[in-house]
Simulated assay, not measured.
Amino acid sequence: MTVAMDARAELLALLEQVHADEQESTLPTFAHADAVDLGTRALALALERGLAVAIRVMRGDQLAFHAATAGTSADNDAWIERKIRLVRRLEISSLQARVRHELDGDDLGWLDPVQYALAGGCIPLRMAGGALVGTLTVSGLPDVDDHALAMEAVRAHLAG
């Protein structure tokens, strides 16, 4: 029982952090140049650390940036597509969806696992007012680390 309570406490802390992250992913602008900058910053971080990841930035329905480092495969691209579908469907980060599912047993069984990935790494990009304008997705690491890399790129972009 203690392990379950410790795990729940960890999930609650993670959920709180993810909520804060999603507030940070509100952008003042989201032009093509912003999308490319976000992707480029995520790629630079991955290359500096020798990480095997695929990165995609969507601007609405348009693919604005995609890169993959050594050690990735088409499977990472498939995971990205499934994570993006989840975020677009639920309008929350894919990590928030996964954590909420684990905490509350949210029944997401109606989501076809072939089409939707209940795994972190895709964050919604919003502008003031809350409208979803795009996504930044990372695939290749454990899902919490995919999410963290995406958020690090957002913070770097916002810092200029």
Score class of each variant (00 low, 15 high):
47 L>V: 14
16 E>R: 14
148 A>D: 05
99 V>E: 00
86 L>R: 13
132 L>A: 01
147 H>I: 14
119 A>R: 15
77 D>G: 12
67 A>D: 07
63 L>N: 03
155 R>Y: 02
90 L>C: 07
76 N>D: 09
92 I>H: 01
88 R>W: 06
135 T>S: 00
157 H>L: 11
65 F>I: 08
80 I>N: 02
160 G>H: 06
14 L>D: 05
56 R>K: 10
127 M>P: 01
124 P>M: 08
119 A>I: 09
41 R>F: 02
148 A>N: 08
56 R>H: 03
63 L>T: 06
47 L>W: 00
48 E>W: 00
63 L>K: 04
56 R>A: 03
157 H>R: 15
158 L>T: 09
55 I>P: 03
29 T>M: 12
39 G>K: 10
99 V>G: 01
41 R>L: 10
50 G>P: 13
80 I>Q: 02
130 G>H: 05
38 L>S: 04
37 D>Q: 11
146 D>R: 02
71 G>N: 07
21 D>N: 14
149 L>H: 02
35 A>E: 11
21 D>K: 11
44 A>K: 10
69 T>E: 03
31 A>R: 11
43 L>N: 07
7 A>Q: 10
28 P>E: 14
9 A>C: 04
89 R>E: 01
27 L>D: 15
15 L>A: 12
43 L>G: 03
134 G>R: 01
24 E>Q: 14
65 F>T: 07
58 M>R: 05
114 V>M: 15
66 H>A: 11
156 A>I: 06
51 L>W: 15
104 D>Y: 10
19 H>R: 14
51 L>M: 15
93 S>G: 13
128 A>C: 01
44 A>G: 06
137 T>D: 02
65 F>A: 06
113 P>L: 14
